[in-house]
Simulated assay, not measured.
Amino acid sequence: GRDKPSLSVWPSHVIPQGQNVTFRCYCHGDYYIFKFYKEHGDPIPQIHGKTFSRKLDLGPVTPAYAGAYRCYCVNYRYHDANSTNSDPVKIIISGLYKKPSLSALMGPVVISGENMTLSCVSDLQFHMFHLSREGVPQGRGLPAVQSHSGAFHSNFHLGPVAQAGNYSCYGSFKNSSYMWSTPSDPLYISVTDNHSKLHILIGISDPERQEVTYLEFDQMIFKQNLTTRNSQIPKEFSTDPSVYM
């Protein structure tokens, strides 16, 4: 049969320069060996014209390894009885340029069901920015936009099904979509349920009267308005003494 094999990669599709990557080509039927090739660019000497069984370890990787790969299976008795090609697997080499920075525009805590925006910024003129969660790319990259300050940025909108975890972003240049920068420092995003509130207590002291006035707010007020109006200040304060300790 001419069953199409499946190709997988470990530990990730995004490999830091100088690290190793492992490919596995899963063949069906009477196929016991496979061949492996890179779709475009110069061939990789480690794989060009060679056959492999079970898995293939490549590395340490350089920018020349970036690109899309496929495998096909070969019958060990009849080398001209090949399977069809697998679907392509993209390998991205990171660590090639200075890292951008990643921040959460409204803070790193999001209430479940609400939206969150992460901003990736760099002073390098990147063409695209890419977001990852726990090392796994999240969707397609976004075009970089130049701000009034001269920096380049993209805003990634998460939600209303944002997942908690460590997020990072990368930059890439035009015509080099498989070559990414060093990742930004990780930003941990936490997701809380709708009922959780962050209570904030502000104490205003008056030395002349020897008294302290306490104002108590919660997270919901500040999420709706950056500037709190007088009508939103609670008219009654907690009678629990522990609140003021």
Rank of each mutant, 00 (worst) to 15 (best):
I202E: 06
K223N: 08
I33H: 07
I200A: 01
I44M: 08
V191W: 00
D42W: 13
D185S: 08
P16D: 03
K99Y: 11
H127L: 00
N115V: 12
A81H: 15
Y188P: 03
K98P: 09
C73Y: 04
S172D: 00
L7R: 02
S205A: 14
C120I: 05
S172N: 02
K174D: 09
L142G: 01
T227K: 08
V61S: 03
Q46C: 00
I200L: 10
F173V: 03
N20M: 11
R140A: 11
L201A: 05
V110Y: 05
P11G: 08
D80F: 11
G165L: 02
K90Y: 14
K35E: 15
I33P: 01
N225S: 07
T227D: 07
S172C: 03
Y26W: 15
T51N: 11
H195N: 13
F52I: 06
D30I: 05
N194V: 06
E114T: 13
H148L: 06
N85C: 12
N115G: 14
K90I: 09
T182Y: 05
M116Y: 04
E39N: 12
T22Y: 07
T213A: 06
R140N: 11
Y167D: 03
E39H: 12
E114W: 08
C169E: 00
D193K: 05
P60W: 02
D80H: 13
S154Y: 00
L124Y: 09
I15G: 01
F217L: 07
Q146N: 03
S238V: 05
I91E: 01
E216A: 07
L131T: 03
G159D: 00
S122Q: 09
T228F: 00
F23K: 02
P241W: 10
K90C: 11
